[in-house]
Computed example of a mutant assay.
Amino acid sequence: MAENRRQRMLALLATDRAARATSSVGLACARCVLELSIAGAGATVLAHLGKGNGDRHPSRGLVYATNEISAGLEDLQLTVGEGPCLDTFALGGPVLIADLAAEGGRWPAFTPAARALGAAAVFSFPLHIGVVRLGSLDLYRDTPGPLTRTELTDALILTDVAAQGVVEDLDGHATADVSWLSDPHVEVHQAAGMVQAQLDVSTDVALMRLRGYAFTHDVPLAEVARQVVSRSLRFTEDKDAE
């Protein structure tokens, strides 16, 4: 059955590719929305900023999102530092949450904000080639409910397609290098470097300060980063930035 599903999906993607001039990642995300009874899909590349005591915080670059809510969910996870995308990347396996309201204790910062954006269920799948983890394919529904067995099969097939698409887009870049992505998250890590120098702290602490400021002031993390890089916002030893 799985092989038949794969052949069907590849045929549909070939038709999509002939009709739309977009990346394989974008085609896979769009086909997820059509096939899986979901409201939106997004794909990200993740890379580790550093190592230390087993605590490694991934950097992220948005590759594709089918709508603003999908993009918002990806940005939210970077802002609060938790969520299904980060868990699936760390675990190397799918994270399937059919009812986000029942998972408040798992992601206390992510869950209420994600529900406010309109997500009622989230499903995250690791993008990987062999043992190399590249990122995640993230899906959401605006009503609770699990993926059916057929939908799960199709999601895994489309995840493979998206992973191959990420490899095509990398085009010689190292998997830890997200500078090739035209995404504001690259600026986040430039800002983290500046905050690190301002406060004389580690990169991890600098990122936490940026995330905390964004969350507390209800400002997108990318906007906080732009303010730091433009030097209109500076972090001090005091609790708040100035």
Rank of each mutant, 00 (worst) to 15 (best):
60 R>K: 12
119 A>T: 08
50 G>P: 00
68 E>D: 15
119 A>C: 05
87 D>K: 05
134 L>S: 06
119 A>S: 10
69 I>N: 09
107 W>Y: 15
123 F>N: 04
94 P>F: 00
51 K>W: 02
60 R>M: 13
84 P>Q: 01
92 G>R: 07
78 L>T: 14
102 A>G: 08
116 A>Q: 11
49 L>D: 06
92 G>P: 00
56 R>G: 08
42 G>R: 13
128 H>N: 13
120 A>T: 01
68 E>N: 12
127 L>G: 04
108 P>F: 03
113 A>G: 01
78 L>Y: 08
48 H>G: 07
98 A>D: 05
47 A>H: 13
118 G>R: 06
90 A>T: 11
85 C>E: 12
133 R>M: 04
58 P>G: 09
47 A>N: 08
94 P>A: 10
85 C>Y: 04
114 A>H: 02
114 A>I: 02
111 T>F: 03
95 V>Q: 14
43 A>R: 09
62 L>M: 11
126 P>F: 07
105 G>W: 03
91 L>W: 06
70 S>C: 12
127 L>P: 00
109 A>M: 05
73 L>F: 02
89 F>M: 07
102 A>S: 15
73 L>C: 03
51 K>T: 10
106 R>F: 04
125 F>P: 00
117 L>Y: 12
46 L>Q: 15
109 A>T: 05
129 I>C: 08
42 G>H: 12
53 N>T: 13
116 A>N: 08
104 G>C: 06
135 G>T: 03
64 Y>R: 14
134 L>M: 10
139 L>E: 10
50 G>Q: 11
139 L>D: 07
125 F>K: 05
87 D>A: 08
133 R>W: 01
92 G>S: 03
75 D>E: 15
106 R>K: 13
77 Q>F: 06
102 A>H: 08
74 E>T: 09
140 Y>I: 09
77 Q>Y: 07
63 V>R: 08
137 L>Q: 03
56 R>C: 08
136 S>I: 04
87 D>G: 00
124 S>H: 03
105 G>A: 14
53 N>K: 14
96 L>H: 08
66 T>W: 02
70 S>Q: 11
49 L>Y: 01
85 C>M: 15
55 D>K: 13
104 G>T: 12
112 P>M: 13
124 S>C: 06
44 T>V: 15
138 D>C: 06
